[in-house]
């Protein structure tokens, strides 16, 4: 009788089902119409099947975004799960598109699908990478900016997982502040 190792044929289930979205800036369409759901997955194998199939962030045109969100959460401030939330924001220099962008974005995806933030992973809604001429951005979105413990834990682990230098700080901003800001910078609620 043949004994088959289940590892060889069972896909590895993730804690959550995730949706990958793609935003392409077409000015003739509404913001929402430009936001397209690419695919959903809930296993390690299906994550890689999708990731290996699509363009790296650094190859996207300026104005495009990828967003990875838990199934049922739309990648916008208005979603009920994002409304009171905010984001840990990494702003990259133009030069970092070549050196760091793809590595940081993959690191961000692995933090999400691998549930890197322990009990605070439930506070994570998703992550977004914005490809922009003036400098790309990567952010992890969480559901409640008032959950100080969850937000700061997520920020500390995130920074460590990406291997960001100690002297580099990243800031957390509420979506409410980001959406009503008048200048180009939003004040940080937390910094790690």
């Amino acid at each position: 009788q043949e004994i088959v190792n289940p590892e060889a044929y069972i896909k590895h289930p993730l804690q959550n089902r995730w949706s990958l979205w793609f935003f392409k800036n077409d000015k003739s369409k509404t913001w929402q119409a430009n936001q397209r759901l690419i695919s959903k997955f809930d296993t390690v194998e299906d994550f890689w099947a999708l990731y290996n199939h699509i363009q790296l962030s650094s190859n996207l045109m300026s104005g495009c975004d990828y967003s990875l969100f838990k199934d049922g959460i739309e990648p916008m401030w208005e979603d009920e799960r994002n409304r009171r939330g905010g984001r840990w924001l990494i702003t990259l220099t133009k030069q970092q598109r070549r050196s760091d962008l793809d590595c940081y974005w993959l690191g961000t995806l692995l933090c999400l699908v691998g549930e890197a933030f322990d009990d605070y992973s439930d506070d994570v809604c998703g992550a977004v990478v914005n490809i922009r001429t003036k400098g790309d951005k990567i952010a992890i979105w969480t559901s409640d900016y008032e959950n100080r413990e969850a937000v700061t834990h997520i920020g500390r682990v995130y920074k460590e997982r990406l291997g960001l230098p100690m002297k580099m700080t990243i800031g957390y901003q509420s979506h409410a502040d980001t959406s009503t800001k008048s200048g180009s910078s939003t004040k940080n609620k937390f910094v790690v």
Binding site: A8, Y9, I10, K11, H12, P13, L14, Q15, V44, E45, D46, F47, W48, A49, Y51, N52, G107, L110, V113, G114, E115, A116, D118, D119, S121, R161
Partner: peptide, 20 residues
């Protein structure tokens, strides 16, 4: 408990042929 996977574990599957 949560299904947590670290970076090394996840990366090991990147180029493994997926089963159907």
């Amino acid at each position: 408990g949560k299904r947590q996977y670290d970076r090394g574990f996840l990366l090991a599957f990147q180029f493994m042929p997926a089963c159907i």
